[in-house]
């Protein structure tokens, strides 16, 4: 099985984005909004359009509360889930503001379900 380069990058950056946002949010005490803003600005500055969008979208998952994603392991599951959802929904509702958030909400709820099954 061969994974396209773009999709592989989306998956890697999604996991990193969720991890960093969650870490800034809960461990560094920045709060979800500043953490999301920081990750989004850095992504937009250094990554090409498509990847920057994926990083910003994934960052929304990292804004989740500890009641939803309580551990670093949860963020990895969340990152993989949101990456897969982004890849599968690239063409749907492109250009509608909030598409990323809806994608993230879907991924977060899937992650929460997976984590509750693992417990």
């Amino acid at each position: 099985m061969k994974i396209k380069e773009t999709n592989k990058n989306i998956l890697i950056f999604s996991v990193l984005s969720v991890l960093i946002t969650w870490f800034l949010n809960h461990k560094m005490g920045c709060g979800p909004i500043i953490a999301n803003g920081l990750v989004g600005v850095v992504g937009a500055l250094f990554l090409p359009g498509m990847l920057a969008g994926a990083v910003f979208t994934s960052s929304f998952v990292g804004m989740s509360g500890l009641n939803v994603i309580p551990t670093l392991f949860g963020t990895i599951i969340g990152g993989i889930t949101v990456g897969v959802v982004i890849i599968l929904t690239k063409e749907i509702y492109a250009g509608v503001g909030g598409k990323g958030g809806t994608t993230a909400a879907t991924a977060t709820l899937i992650t929460k379900t997976i984590l509750s099954l693992i417990k």
Partner: peptide, 15 residues
């Protein structure tokens, strides 16, 4: 506490 809630509100508004 669910990440993506704000984006979903944004999407509903735009749609």
């Amino acid at each position: 506490g669910v990440g993506g809630k704000l984006g979903t509100i944004a999407a509903i508004s735009c749609l």
